[in-house]
């Protein structure tokens, strides 16, 4: 039998990637009876050996320095990497206590500041009536999250910064509230600490898994993960406020329904969004 088993079939066979029992039998039979077949199989193995023994040329002279220099230049252009989840840890006792996701009484104490600051905003879309009805049934079981002081050991190298500012975001003031959030989280690199309390990110264990899955889902959709998530409310209903990096070191704020991780189309959970004009300075 000089039947044709081409090199590709043989190579796939050798990798166990033929996925065809009959074909595999044929190849086996052919290998058993044909010297040529065995030689070809050996030749294929030699391809691997030839490839493996080809030396890697050394890095060209000066490349190491060139790369270092390029990175230094880049660092000068952007002293603080945009989107860095640099959130100061405040040692205050308040942060070590239970932090309600949604304050049960009264507006957060910084709300007056925000309202005062609210001016022209870019709100894209949003029907708030529909919104409220969507949110009212949202469960409140996880409305109180114990903040545990993170031990250095427990801190993951990268983690999503998740906070609960207690802010009730509004359609009118969304962009300003987003800018305020950014400032308080110190992501912008500006020190807004003087005028408002810095936010402390939750310990990893305190971040609900639903938040993580939602963030992952949105990351797929937008090709970027949020740098900060505020478990807060929007027009009085629970909502996750996410800050995404945008062009020119700006940010986009997106208001997301808490169930977004379970949706087929996670983007549909995004209720509204606004662009923060280049924050910081």
């Amino acid at each position: 039998m000089t039947s044709h088993v081409d090199p590709e079939t043989l190579a796939l066979f050798a990798e166990g990637e033929l996925h065809d029992k009959e074909r595999e039998q044929e190849v086996r039979a052919w290998l058993a009876e044909s010297e040529e077949a065995r030689a070809q199989l050996a030749a294929l193995r030699e391809v691997t050996q030839i490839l493996a023994s080809t030396p890697v040329p050394p890095m060209p002279d000066g490349l190491v320095e060139r790369i270092d220099e390029a990175l230094r230049a880049e660092a000068r252009k952007h002293p603080v990497p945009s989107g860095a989840p640099v959130v100061p840890l405040t040692p205050s006792d308040e942060n070590a206590k239970v932090r309600p996701l949604r304050r049960s009484h009264g507006p957060a104490r910084w709300t007056p500041f925000l309202v005062a600051a609210a001016a022209a905003v870019f709100v894209l879309g949003a029907g708030t009536a529909v919104l409220s009805s969507l949110f009212t049934s949202s469960d409140t079981t996880d409305s109180a999250v114990v903040f545990e002081q993170t031990s250095p050991q427990a801190a993951l190298p990268y983690r999503l910064a998740v906070v609960s500012s207690g802010t009730d975001y509004t359609s009118d003031a969304l962009a300003d509230q987003g800018a305020e959030l950014l400032g308080r989280s110190a992501l912008s690199g500006s020190d807004g600490a003087a005028e408002s309390e810095p936010l402390t990110p939750k310990a990893d264990e305190a971040v609900p898994a639903t938040v993580t899955s939602c963030v992952d889902a949105l990351n797929e959709v937008y090709g970027a993960a949020p740098i900060l998530v505020d478990l807060a409310s929007y027009e009085g209903s629970p909502a996750w406020i996410m800050l995404f990096p945008a062009a020119d070191n700006g940010h986009e704020i997106r208001v997301v329904q808490p169930d977004c991780g379970e949706k087929d189309d996670p983007a549909s959970a995004v209720v509204t969004s606004a662009v923060l004009s280049n924050s910081g300075e």
Partner: peptide, 10 residues
Amino acid sequence: KSRCARGRAR
């Protein structure tokens, strides 16, 4: 694996 196999054959 199958990409490697095809590549080797080629």
